[in-house]
Amino acid sequence: MKKHIFISGRVQGVGFRHFTKKNAEALGVKGWVKNLPDKRVEAIFQGSEEKVDDLIQRCKKGPVASFVQDIKVRDAKDETVYKSFEVKL
């Protein structure tokens, strides 16, 4: 399963990307996360349905200093097979 995620709220400058990477690696989810110029965070999560759903739930809470206002989740259209989870700059 692969999902394309957009997270909005206070999600930049609060360690959200590091939080996402740490949790993705703990769950064995592959993909990437990055900040967007419009202050949202974008990510691709690839893994089993259960683990991807778990990571999405963790991102709904986010790190302590964050405030997640909204998460949009859709099926990812790219065909890339990710081998790790990375923070894109």
Rank of each mutant, 00 (worst) to 15 (best):
C59H: 03
C59W: 01
A26P: 02
C59A: 06
K34S: 12
V81D: 14
K34Q: 07
S48K: 05
K30T: 05
D75G: 11
R40A: 03
N35G: 01
E50V: 10
A24R: 01
G62Y: 10
E49L: 11
A76N: 04
D78E: 14
K83F: 08
E79S: 15
A65Q: 00
D75A: 13
Q57D: 13
G31P: 01
K77H: 15
Q57T: 03
E50D: 06
L55M: 06
Q46F: 00
A24S: 08
G47S: 02
G31I: 05
Q57H: 00
K77A: 15
A43C: 03
E25L: 04
S48P: 06
K77S: 15
D54H: 10
G47E: 08
V29Y: 03
G47C: 06
E50H: 07
K77Y: 15
P37D: 00
T80N: 00
Y82C: 00
V64S: 15
G62K: 03
V81E: 05
D53R: 01
K61N: 09
I44N: 00
V64A: 15
D54I: 08
S84K: 14
A26T: 02
Q46I: 10
G62R: 06
Q57C: 03
T80I: 07
I71N: 02
E49V: 09
K77M: 15
F45Q: 03
V73L: 07
I56H: 03
V29K: 07
D70E: 13
V81Q: 09
N35W: 01
D38M: 12
K30W: 11
F45E: 11
Q46S: 08
K60R: 15
D75C: 00
N35M: 05
A76Y: 01
Q69F: 06
V33F: 05
N35L: 10
G31F: 07
S66E: 04
V81G: 04
R58N: 09
A76E: 13
Q57G: 10
R40T: 05
K39E: 10
S84H: 14
L27M: 01
V81L: 10
K30F: 04
E50I: 12
E79Y: 14
W32T: 10
Q57I: 09
Y82E: 08
R58S: 06
P37A: 07
F67E: 08
K60E: 14
F67I: 12
E50Q: 09
D53T: 03
P37G: 12
D54A: 09
C59E: 11
V68P: 08
Q57L: 13
P63R: 03
V52R: 09
K39S: 02
C59M: 08
A24Q: 03
I56S: 02
R74S: 07
V33P: 12
R58C: 10
D53Q: 11
K34M: 02
V68F: 06
V73H: 00
K72T: 13
P37I: 02
V29C: 00
P37T: 12
D70C: 09
K61A: 05
Q69V: 11
R58M: 11
V52A: 09
R74E: 10
